[in-house]
Design a protein around this nucleic acid. Structure first.
Lengths: 222, 222
DNA sequence: CGCGCACTCCGCCTCGCAGCCGATTTCCGC
DNA sequence: GCGGAAATCGGCTGCGAGGCGGAGTGCGCG
């Protein structure tokens, strides 16, 4: 881990060790696309693929890759949870998030879980490999769109855990009374949380609130 | 166009013509993945790629592919609109929808626009090529999940154009009065449409309606 | 220790929403 | 032409939602 300055170049030295990459995505088509690009680089090679978070953790333990490319929304186990478990196994693990979504909540949660980079699937192949090299060199990398969303986030007021619970139940279509029953609090308290919620999200109705919360990745449909 | 029975096999005939494929997706990574798989088949080859609907139509006119693999949600021009324009240029054009989403509204609109197949991005490479060959042979192909959703749809009551407009404005967070102003109708009429809407969607509140409509692909967030 | 914040609860009041009764016009298809 | 579906409009009722105020607890942090 001493000379991890990223330039493990394929000059002419005996056996130029290629950085080992784990690719995690539930779409086989994208995995092959990524694998193909990565394997075409002299200093990189894909050592394993996984199609959900569970498999990702298992593959990480078995292959101990130098870097893991990880999608977020997957069946069985979410990407964020997988990142958390991988970092628990090895706190030095380097994980690059490669996803379609750029909601600020997703970005923040991924970075909190220990991701070193966050890039979107619409990037070019060259950007992908340069991002991987950045991370291998010990640096972090944020897609411009992700960085912008993250910057926006700091100006926004955060929701409390209780407010989040209320928000999610509300998005499920429950009435104030039903939310109260669900959380074992009075309907009046639900209304108080909602009032704060509306204030923080800058809206005046529950329908608008669902809209804004969906955009920011605070609630998830389906 | 006479002997288009799909078996343009690479047996031993002079120059076995490979079926020409156009790949349309806004994710470069997935395009390369698909292109790689397609080009590994002896009877298929990718002749062009496009990253949005606009480019797709232009590429179709220039290259006249035998089959087009098309994503639905793209910037500039949606996939459904691109399918419609391509079919206007050549009513014989064969388009395979390759997307992440399986909402019944998406499937129905794509097929109405003239798509011959609907598959999801989580399929295996082998299924992708077999689907392409099916379509080249003049047949249609529906992913099991898509077929199920489509079957479900026929039992569901369809919404009228006006009801859809009201639904979308409602999902945007507008009040009944605001919706009325927007559509130049009285608030009373908005309420009538909403009552029908709730009846058809099987819900009792606007928040639930947004939820159900989102699932079915009737409204789109972001 | 005091301050702020999160969480809880309470009353009152207004207004929008949803359910109910009704109605007319237009337009399409059989 | 007649039935039916779509779109338009009216009023009435009751409840839920959202804005107004205040207020008590516990917890962490400076």
């Amino acid at each position: 881990m001493a000379s991890a300055d990223g330039r493990i170049e394929a000059t002419a030295d005996a056996a130029p060790r290629r950085a080992r990459v784990l690719v995690v995505d539930d779409h086989a088509l994208l995995r092959t696309g990524v694998a193909n690009i990565v394997n075409h680089e002299q200093d990189l090679e894909v050592v394993a693929e996984a199609s959900d978070g569970q498999e990702a953790v298992e593959a990480f333990e078995r292959y101990r890759p130098d870097v893991t490319l990880m999608d977020l929304r997957m069946p069985v186990m979410e990407g964020v949870e997988a990142i958390r478990r991988i970092r628990a196994i090895d706190p030095q693990a380097r994980v690059v998030v490669l996803t379609t979504y750029d909601a600020d909540e997703d970005i923040a949660r991924a970075l909190e879980a220990g991701a070193k980079a966050y890039i979107l699937k619409d990037i070019a192949a060259s950007e992908l490999v340069s991002c991987v090299r950045q991370v291998l060199a010990g640096r972090t990398y944020l897609a411009p769109a992700a960085a912008a969303k993250l910057a926006e986030r700091v100006t926004q007021v955060q929701l409390t855990p209780r407010e989040l619970s209320v928000l999610r139940l509300m998005a499920d279509g429950l009435s104030n009374k039903e939310i109260g029953v669900e959380l074992s609090i009075s309907e009046r308290t639900v209304k108080t949380h909602l009032a704060h919620l509306f204030e923080k999200l800058g809206v005046t109705s529950r329908t608008e609130a669902v809209r804004v919360a969906t955009r920011r990745g605070l609630v998830r449909f389906e």
